[in-house]
């Protein structure tokens, strides 16, 4: 299925409580070399047809304005799987 994949991460300088909790758990589990974890999200937009340039443009716009909260998050990638 053709899809556009949007990847979003919490802004670098903001606290990521989820990442912190997972990092603590990993270290407790013996992974002493892991010094930090940050958790973002991956959003797939599915299409029943080929993805066009226009779709990508629109996806980028939606990624910035709607799918992410640009006060606390960054869109780090918008990619296509056709």
């Amino acid at each position: 299925m053709p899809k556009i994949i949007v990847e979003i991460m919490p802004k670098q300088d903001l606290l990521d409580p989820q990442g912190k909790a997972v990092a603590n758990a990993l270290v407790r589990g013996g992974n002493k070399d892991i010094s930090g974890v940050r958790i973002g999200k991956r959003i797939e937009l599915h299409f029943d047809r080929e993805v066009t340039e226009k779709d990508i443009e629109e996806a980028k716009k939606q990624a910035k304005e709607f799918l992410s909260n640009d006060v606390i998050e960054d869109v780090v990638a918008v990619t296509v799987e056709n």
Binding site: K11, L15, P17, V71
Partner: peptide
């Protein structure tokens, strides 16, 4: 930049 809270902490 705003603050992000962690209620469990």
């Amino acid at each position: 930049a705003v603050q992000v809270g962690d209620p469990f902490a």
